[in-house]
Measured scan of single mutants.
Amino acid sequence: MSGIALSRLAQERKAWRKDHPFGFVAVPTKNPDGTMNLMNWECAIPGKKGTPWEGGLFKLRMLFKDDYPSSPPKCKFEPPLFHPNVYPSGTVCLSILEEDKDWRPAITIKQILLGIQELLNEPNIQDPAQAEAYTIYCQNRVEYEKRVRAQAKKFAPS
């Protein structure tokens, strides 16, 4: 494992614990031996107030490669969400998460999670990743928002 990646992720964890947006979660997972795995984080993004996503808490896994922060983490909703920019596998399609697009090593975990929260309610229809959600979003916004509200209710924190 890269010392650069681990040191950056340790800084990220410290900064997150000191200050993070209300309702968001970002925690490194534990290895079988109980030690912390900084390369694999369990996160959760709350649906934004005043949107059909409100009330939901959407679980996301963030996986970092050894060359982080040169390369972005892979962000994957578990379980996958109904959304035009979420692949059926759950992987998020967002330009700041793509090395050859808008990724920059200075982007923080907090910025990534806030960017994904923004994307939930403002899909990028130029870059669809899920045919069904994309089609319904474009053709029947009322039905799309109904499905999103049902999903938010399903993923409401207990």
Rank of each mutant, 00 (worst) to 15 (best):
A156F: 11
V148T: 04
E42I: 03
G90M: 10
L63Q: 14
Q11N: 09
P123Y: 04
E98Y: 15
G47V: 00
E143R: 06
H20T: 03
L113S: 10
F82E: 04
P28W: 00
W53Y: 05
W103S: 01
R104V: 05
A10M: 14
C75W: 05
T135L: 12
S71V: 05
D19W: 06
P84E: 02
P69N: 01
P123W: 02
N124L: 00
N121Q: 13
E132W: 05
S95C: 06
A26Q: 04
T108M: 14
L94A: 04
M62K: 05
E118A: 09
Q11L: 13
Y68A: 04
Q139Y: 14
C75S: 12
C43E: 07
Q111V: 14
E118R: 11
T108K: 14
F82T: 04
C93N: 03
A44L: 11
K48P: 15
F24Y: 12
I4N: 06
D102A: 13
K59R: 13
Q117C: 12
P21R: 00
L60Y: 09
G34K: 07
T135K: 06
D100M: 15
K14R: 15
C75Q: 02
T29P: 04
T108S: 15
S89N: 07
A131V: 13
K48N: 10
M1F: 07
Y134D: 05
M39D: 08
A106N: 02
P80W: 14
I136N: 07
F82D: 02
R13G: 00
G47D: 05
E42W: 08
P69Y: 01
Q151G: 06
K146I: 11
L38C: 07
L119R: 01
A129I: 01
F58T: 06
P157S: 12
T35Q: 04
P72M: 00
G23P: 03
P28Y: 00
V25S: 08
M1A: 07
W103V: 00
A150T: 12
W53I: 02
N31S: 11
A10S: 10
N140I: 00
P28K: 06
P46M: 05
F64C: 08
I109G: 05
S89C: 15
L9W: 06
D67F: 15
G56D: 02
I125S: 09
L81I: 13
E78L: 10
E98P: 11
A5N: 12
V86R: 02
T108Q: 15
A44P: 01
E118Q: 09
E98R: 07
M39G: 09
D33Y: 03
P32A: 13
V27F: 04
L60E: 03
K18Q: 09
E132S: 07
V142W: 10
F24E: 07
